[in-house]
Design a protein around this nucleic acid. Sequence first.
DNA 1: ATCATCTAGTTGCGCGCGTTACTAGATGAG
DNA 2: CTCATCTAGTAACGCGCGCAACTAGATGAT
Lengths: 356, 356
Amino acid sequence: MANTTNLSKATAVRQRAVTMKDVAIHAGVSRTAVSFVLNNRQDASISEDTRARIKDAVQALGYRPNAGARALASQRSDWYGIVTEIVTAPFAVDTIKGAQDQAWLDRRFLLIAPSDQADAVGPNKGMEDAAIEKLLEQRVEGLLYAATFHRGVHVPQSAHEVPTVLINCFDLDGKLPSIVPDEHGGGRVAIARLLKAGHQRIGVINLDPIIPASVGRLAGAREALAEAGLELDPELVVTGHATADGGYDAACQILDRYPEKDRPTALFCLNDRMAMGAYDAIKERGLRIPEDIAVIGFDNQELIAAYLRPKLTTVALPFQKMGALGVQTLAILTAGQSIVANQQLVDCPLLERSSV
Amino acid sequence: MANTTNLSKATAVRQRAVTMKDVAIHAGVSRTAVSFVLNNRQDASISEDTRARIKDAVQALGYRPNAGARALASQRSDWYGIVTEIVTAPFAVDTIKGAQDQAWLDRRFLLIAPSDQADAVGPNKGMEDAAIEKLLEQRVEGLLYAATFHRGVHVPQSAHEVPTVLINCFDLDGKLPSIVPDEHGGGRVAIARLLKAGHQRIGVINLDPIIPASVGRLAGAREALAEAGLELDPELVVTGHATADGGYDAACQILDRYPEKDRPTALFCLNDRMAMGAYDAIKERGLRIPEDIAVIGFDNQELIAAYLRPKLTTVALPFQKMGALGVQTLAILTAGQSIVANQQLVDCPLLERSSV
DNA sequence: ATCATCTAGTTGCGCGCGTTACTAGATGAG
DNA sequence: CTCATCTAGTAACGCGCGCAACTAGATGAT
């Protein structure tokens, strides 16, 4: 009979799928017995013998459970949803990856909804709402809401209907728990690394000073300097546009402003794209990295950091970890338990390459 | 009553969801009537009056259809699955994006399954099988199987149980339809662009010469040259490791091998990462881009191409388009119709920036 | 011999929905 | 008045499954 099954499977593709009932008939038991065996229920008593017969039947028929029907009957879907900008964001994929892997471990499925514009005020706001709506129609048990740069957000109302965890952003108007990078610690570790290498005069290429990334990283930098008895010279902090060009311009400013002896010996770039531009400015002036000027970045944007020459030492944004932690947090919340902290910080580790 | 609903929604989060039955009772009709209205069935006759009452009830109660139950009853899920390496691949996200958007337009949902190793012989092969298995358990109606670089693959047997379309790869042992970039045309357009700018002596930084990308792009390059009455000088084709370092080394070879007058005036780099390294080699020699040496890349790896200085002119791999086309093809196949060609080529358009 | 307990299952309900078949009442033709 | 036809719905089944409640037979204690 296994024969005919294989045959029919090979010839006619669009056949009615094998159900538990088929398995039950094949094994000569009731459908319930099959269910018990497949779900490994301890309270039911099925002899080893029939248990084996059932498993054989499953194999022989190529039975595959119907996840939708199971969800319907059991009133739980084992699905989480994640909504995030997907393509505009080089980082989104890391968050997804982290969440996906963790979900996989927990035997859960991650539904990914597109949100071209996670920004709460954008013109595509409607799309984001629709995306969440779709996820809720799939009866996801929890939601992950991920931003591509650390910021405060307003989360659509519908997201409050199931447990929701914010990743790389925080709830501006509510109580939703969030997971964000420890920008402060990242700033510290970057500066600490430079200090350890003997640098005392450090230039900083800053981001827009009002965003959390800038605030946190600079505070951390100051703290690390203070511990070494140093201060951050405001003149050495230049704000640049968050691109390679911006980094180039800012680096030029810093490098050209001082005579060689007063020139900073290291640059802390608050993101890797700006570091990429800074590299150009440095090389253009005939200076070597890291011998003449050390450079340290932030973000660990793989495509940049790992391919710059020399490879860029940088502080990593822990997107994968945040994604995984998001799923873990969701697991706690959907289990009805409560979590300890409303905001969880995740370490930003230093990645040593060759630019310091 | 809208009041109490809102209230209960706000206070008790984990409430039984509103079902069609609730809507029916609220509107004073049968559940069937609700179903007819929601599905806009033409054959059923419901008066405008009750139709409105039902829609009001849907609004008032905040009814949201249960996608799983609907799938179960209607025997169609409106879901497609996509399996692809997700994080190892900077491109995967573009494919997903394209597919996702198209699916969204078609009112379908895209389930994304992780596959750390889409390679058919890798150690994680089991995971890929498991991923497909999971997708089939969700009763996806079709599968997209996407690779991160153009190559031949062996697709797991289970993927043959539903319509499957390969993206950026082709089926080594079967009949599965595939969608791949037009490497040949891309090579042509790159060289044509350089010719148009007056370059006659063109260096090529090649990839591993046996992969489809290399074969196709070089053939296209030769064709474009031939049309201009030129030939590709084999000496000017250097194979490099597909990284920035590899591009740097290859560029150095090409640049240092000839006296200035015989030096190529343009470099065609078969991927953007190698172009990134080539930039370094060129700048190191005091040469300017594009005045002294023009550079054209391939892939359009945004983070690189758009942030190099000068910005890199490159040929784009049409991942989004391939993803979208994949979904469209799947729609045809799942509708039971057959498609024209077993292999569809997608244009690789030239992206003009500033390096030519 | 009687009754309780245990083993190895089975019967049957309901999850939320799509869908087919049916029906009660209104309308019109003869 | 009778019968056919149309309008505006409704009753009921089944999708595949989980699960609570039940049962037939075997075993053991009294």
